[in-house]
Amino acid sequence: MNIGIDMMGGDFAPLEAVKGLQTYLSTSNSRATLYCIGNEAELELLFAEYSLVSPELVIVHASQVIDMDEHATKAFKEKQDSSIAVGFRTLAAGKVDAFISAGNTGAMLVGAFYSIKAIAGVHRPAIASIVPKVSGATGILLDVGLNADCKPENLNQFALLGSLYAKDVFGIENPKVGLLNVGEEEGKGNILTQATYPLLKENRGINFIGNIEGRDVFLDKADVMICDGFTGNIILKMAESLYDAAKERNIPDTFMHRFNYEDVGGTPVLGVAKPIVIGHGISNATAFSNMILLAEKMVASNICGHIIDQFKA
């Protein structure tokens, strides 16, 4: 298994990316070959400083970096030797099986759509995030920011993408799908949710259990929770703030700690042909290590292949 890593992406790269490699190599039992994409001279110095010597580390030189505040499409087009652009070329060529980055999110999405492309039949790929449950279980929420405005058929496809992800990567058999709404009754909601409900109800590829409300997000009522990206992003940021509040108030709670972005690592782009994981811009070593582990799971489970097969059917 080969995984490409943008070593220059993120507010604290490449240092924290290198530390993340060190964490991964010292704690993981699996051994993927890691293609470390970035400035070769900088990486060699840091590898020497942190005693990173392994046949599983391969440096791929990239002379440019797409900064976090750059226009995504323009930068991706003009900086063809950036770590993100080189990473996507490496992925498209089949030299790596997955690509991860904590860099410019917009540039990552541009690369995902134009270098790898959406799976045939998928109208709009989505970004999925895990949601800790009070019971200790894990839920999936999508979309969490890629598609602010959606049509009913988009949400219907998100339900299928989320179900496959929950099953393949998290081992949730026959995941329960809930439509996030302002009430449990079938007729509740705005135009989007009212039109989406019958599509989900008729979708034989999912286990639809009906509408869920905001109070159900952290409970076990649904394993996969569907909404537009505008709503999902607000929920995601609110959930992150729970961890920040608990940490600031020095509350040692295991449930609250599961909202720590470092332990989540990154979020996958579901609906594109190959595994792509996007990390938080402030990712540290732990987050980089967990992004690698998530990419491993996606490759090992063949989630993209299963999505391709499902949408062919």
Rank of each mutant, 00 (worst) to 15 (best):
L21I: 12
P132Q: 05
A148V: 14
Q64Y: 04
H61T: 05
N29S: 14
I292K: 11
V144Y: 05
L45S: 14
I59R: 13
L179G: 09
Q157W: 05
V110L: 01
E44A: 08
F76I: 06
G229R: 06
F288S: 07
Q80H: 08
A120L: 11
D11E: 14
T254S: 01
H306W: 02
D309Q: 14
A93D: 05
D67K: 15
A285L: 02
K176Q: 13
H123C: 00
P198A: 04
D81L: 14
N29F: 06
E42D: 15
N211G: 14
A295L: 07
I191R: 15
T231N: 09
E186G: 14
V58I: 15
K237N: 03
V182I: 15
G121Y: 08
I172L: 01
S54K: 15
L164V: 15
K151N: 02
A112F: 07
N104Y: 12
E153V: 10
K77P: 00
N154W: 12
V60R: 14
L15I: 10
A287I: 10
S163R: 12
V269G: 01
A41N: 12
L142W: 09
L161P: 00
V131T: 13
Y50M: 08
N250H: 08
G111K: 06
L242V: 15
Q310V: 11
K151Q: 11
V134R: 11
E44D: 09
S163V: 10
G87A: 07
T27G: 02
L219E: 13
G187W: 06
K201W: 07
K188V: 04
E16D: 06
A166F: 08
S115F: 11
F218C: 04
M238W: 08
N156L: 02
G210I: 13
G139F: 11
P132Y: 04
S83I: 10
K176S: 13
M256L: 14
I119E: 11
A159F: 09
G281I: 06
V96F: 05
G145T: 05
H257M: 01
V96Y: 08
G266C: 06
T254H: 00
R204L: 07
D228T: 09
I282F: 06
R215G: 10
L219C: 04
V224D: 08
K74H: 11
A148P: 01
A112D: 04
F230A: 03
E42V: 03
L179V: 13
F170D: 01
H306T: 11
M1G: 14
Q157M: 06
K247T: 07
K274Y: 06
H257C: 01
A245G: 03
M256E: 00
